[in-house]
Design a protein around this nucleic acid. Structure first.
Length: 535
RNA sequence: GGUCCUGUAGCUCAACUGGAUAGAGCAACUGCCUUCUAAGCAGUAGGUUUCAGGUUCGAGUCCUGACAGGAUCACCA
């Protein structure tokens, strides 16, 4: 309403913020109540109308030789949340996962398994399949290092030894066999991958993320060679004497970049070109968002420039959502050095901490065992997701395992708590038969400052959804929800609800609470976070 | 060495894309549970926005340089 008033009455371009303070003085309660009723009666709160565009959000992209870690948590939560935010902005969204299920790193796990496992399975070992594969990946590395040491002792240089270690040669041989379709190798590969997928499924379920479409590199790694031919024909690529094919991006400020090896085999970017075409063929996308860490900025810069040079219709819609790494106080996570924070472990730790907090606060009476368990998951994962999403995705962030993730202040549980409080109020309203849904609030003549402030923030919800969508930033939504919850808590502390004698005002305050709860619930769902009715 | 990203309170992060007195949370300190959930609320203290210049009526934000941290620059993925 304020915006419309300004458009109609203020001729020049005026900064909204400058005018807002002035309006606060001038606007009477009538306007605030009207504004509230307008939002309150909107049945599609938080869902903008369709814009007719289709977008793919690709995230997760795990390697099938080891379990998911903290970095994957940020990636998955980000990707899932961005997908939800784009849906709310009126896009049709396809959530995709490009699984890296082939290559030398998987062969390493397979070789080590063959040497050391003695037929061990996830069932017999009692560990998840992805952790089992990870175990043998680590064993490979230990054995590899041992062999290098031995070779160096025999007089080889370190560099030679790294190339000649028998177990590495074995892994390379296994990759050749896999590519040739060797039966025994392929069947071992299938068996181990099936274990890993079972493990991933469990982790994804715990994380609360899902996918509409899986792509597997074992299916796509040969794609893209036809595009190389096309690029040569179009003069976008050129061939060197040894037969290797390159693209010249010096006019775009980049270098020359290889797109096909001299022996005619693919490199990383060859298959990414092919996969880009495949996605478009499958879905006819207007936009494609790649949620990938910023270490691959250069790669995607090159990829997108190539596809645009080739005149792909989807070229302008390609976007790399480049997020920063999660660092530990000791530096970067390295799987081989055992400094990785495991996704399953961390989630369980958060759930346990939630349980501990809840019990300390004595807030567990009246819960069944199942309900309590569900609550701990909602709170633990809510804290974790909020922690990872409240920071600007582009920035790298610090995670200190020594300091536990907070449950107080600017956190997920803070927002969840506000929702639970309101849910209690709504239960009481129902109990007392307060009919707040159908009320017209025309009788309201006085509003507390915290009430007008709350209405202002509620009015901002859709604007924030748009902003979060334009910036691909769940952090915008996380911040908004914190401010909303904070403002509600102030209202809650300062203004009585059921002790109010005027029935119209009482109903209005319940309705204001109900709208706040609805907004929190919807907003948190855009972050992939659930909200409890009691906590 | 080239390119890119980052540098804001003791710590972790904001600042609506160039606007008015740079805001939150944590940590510290002071109040508030005999009224709807204290995982909360109100308050105190904490800043030369890494440094030096420049553009502008106005700069944390834009430009140049320095310093510090990170990423990347494979016929790896």
């Amino acid at each position: 309403l304020i915006g419309e008033y300004l458009k109609a009455n203020v001729p020049a371009v005026v900064d909204f913020n400058v005018v807002k303070g002035f309006l606060n003085l001038v606007l009477n309660e009538r306007v605030w109540v009207d504004l509230f009723e307008k939002i309150y009666s909107n049945p599609s709160l938080g869902q903008l109308s369709s814009n007719g565009q289709k977008v793919m959000v690709e995230y997760s992209s795990p390697n099938t030789n080891k379990p998911l870690h903290l970095g994957h948590l940020r990636n998955n939560f980000l990707g899932y949340s961005v997908a939800e935010i784009l849906k709310a902005n009126g896009y049709e969204v396809v959530k995709a996962n490009l699984v890296n299920d082939r290559g030398i790193h998987i062969c390493k796990s397979m070789v080590a398994y063959r040497h050391f496992a003695q037929g061990e399975t996830p069932e017999s070992a009692g560990i998840k399949g992805d952790h089992l594969a990870g175990k043998y990946y680590v064993l490979f590395d230990q054995e590899y290092k041992k062999q290098i040491k031995a070779l160096v002792a025999e007089g080889q240089s370190e560099e030679e030894a790294k190339k000649n270690a028998p177990i590495l040669l074995e892994a390379q041989e296994m990759l050749r066999k896999w590519e040739a379709g060797d039966k025994e190798t392929v069947s071992l590969w299938k068996m181990m991958n099936s274990w890993v997928y079972a493990g991933f499924d469990a982790t994804y379920q715990k994380m609360g993320v899902d996918f509409d479409k899986f792509y597997y590199e074992s299916d796509t790694y040969l794609l893209g060679k036809d595009i190389v031919e096309e690029g040569l024909a179009k003069g976008v690529f050129f061939k060197k004497e040894n037969g290797s094919v390159w693209v010249d991006l010096t006019d775009e400020g980049l270098d020359e970049k290889l797109v096909l090896r001299g022996d005619g085999t693919s490199v990383y970017i060859t298959q990414d070109m092919g996969t880009a075409d495949l996605k478009y063929k499958d879905f006819g996308l207007d936009k494609s968002v790649y949620v990938v860490g910023n270490e691959q900025d250069y790669h995607f810069d090159v990829l997108f420039k190539i596809m645009r040079k080739l005149g792909r219709p989807y070229g302008p819609g390609l976007y790399h959502l480049s997020y920063g790494m999660v660092d530990l106080p000791t530096g970067k996570m390295k799987s081989r050095e055992g400094t990785v924070v495991d996704a399953d472990d961390l989630m369980q730790e958060m759930i346990d901490t939630a349980e501990q907090h809840t019990k300390e606060l004595g807030k567990i009476e009246g819960f069944s065992v199942e309900q309590a368990k569900e609550l701990y998951e909602i709170l633990g994962l809510g804290a974790l997701k909020y922690f990872l999403l409240k920071v600007d995705p582009k920035k790298r962030m610090l995670f200190n395992p020594q300091e536990s993730i907070e449950f107080q202040g600017y956190t997920g549980p803070f927002v969840q708590y506000s929702h639970a409080r309101i849910a209690a109020i709504l239960r009481k309203a129902d109990q007392l038969g307060v009919n707040y849904q159908e009320s017209q609030f025309s009788g309201i003549t006085a509003l507390a400052e915290s009430e007008t402030a709350l209405i202002q923030i509620l009015n901002d919800f859709e604007r924030k959804i748009k902003l979060a969508g334009e910036d691909y930033s769940p952090a915008v939504m996380a911040q908004y929800l914190f401010e909303l919850a904070k403002e509600y808590n102030r209202f809650y502390a300062e203004v009585p609800i059921f002790h109010e004698k005027d029935q119209e005002i009482l109903k209005f305050r319940v309705a204001l609470s109900a709208l706040t709860a609805k907004t929190i619930k919807k907003g948190m769902s855009l972050l992939g976070i659930l909200v409890p009715d009691r906590m």
